[in-house]
Amino acid sequence: MKKQAIITTSIVAGAVVLAGAGVAIALTTAPTEAPDAASTTVATTPAEATPTADTLATPEHDAATPYDTTTALLFLIEEEKLAHDVYVTLGDQWGSNIFTNIADSETTHQELVAPLLDARGIADPRSTEVGVFTDPDLQALYDDLMARGSTSLAEAIQVGIVIEEKDITDLSAAIAAEDEADVVSVLERLLAGSENHLRSFERQA
């Protein structure tokens, strides 16, 4: 029996906040004011913000979706592949050792998750091609992060920070919801690794 994601609702300063399994969604409703008869304000849509760890979606950790070990493992192994592929590519582009060194660790992380898939008869979703993903959200995320990281070394370091912060968020949520001991053990090792990687990128920022 898998643990179900817990959904909580709270109202804070006019915002309705839904939180569950490590994901918070805020829906803010501004007070309605009568329009000024003397003037009319035309709203403009701001340019799309650069993705951050707080704005990146994690499908299986959506507050309305019950946690499932199979879904989580499929997502997490490709998330580790995403980190590896981004770091390999940015390392080649910028010649910075931090990307090469951490990419090797991301390979190890994938090797830790793969036996969990095998033990459960779950087909490995990973492509052997760099930058190619089965999960469409991870594919879109990879494309966005590579576009950002290719602009400068400083932005590439920020991409590393975003990836590791997202990994930490996703792994923490999975650990909290998981009840299979072998999975928890592996995810805790991945979490410790991501925390170390984050500190390394932050020292370079």
Rank of each mutant, 00 (worst) to 15 (best):
S105I: 08
A53S: 15
I77V: 15
E33W: 02
I11C: 00
I161T: 11
L145Q: 09
D68W: 00
Q158I: 01
L153C: 02
L145V: 04
A37L: 14
T100D: 11
E202S: 11
A114S: 13
V86P: 00
G160S: 14
D92R: 07
I11R: 03
M146G: 07
A13W: 01
D62E: 14
S96A: 15
V186P: 10
A176E: 15
L171H: 07
T52Y: 00
E129G: 03
T55Q: 10
E155H: 05
P46M: 05
F133T: 11
E188F: 07
M146L: 15
S185D: 15
T100G: 10
V17N: 10
Y67T: 05
A53C: 05
G149P: 01
D143H: 08
Q110G: 14
A21G: 02
E164V: 08
I7K: 10
K3E: 07
A174K: 13
E180C: 00
A30W: 00
Q139I: 06
S194K: 02
A192L: 13
A30H: 03
I6G: 00
D167T: 03
A192N: 10
T50G: 06
A119Y: 08
E80T: 13
D144F: 02
S39E: 13
V88Y: 05
A37Y: 11
T71Q: 12
Q139C: 07
A49H: 03
L198C: 09
L73K: 08
T52D: 07
Q158F: 01
Q158R: 11
E106P: 08
K166C: 00
D137V: 06
D179M: 04
V88K: 13
A30P: 02
I122T: 10
E78Y: 05
T29C: 00
A19T: 12
D179A: 07
A15E: 10
P35H: 10
A154M: 02
V162A: 04
A103T: 06
A140H: 08
A47T: 14
I102L: 14
A103C: 11
P46A: 00
E78L: 04
E155V: 04
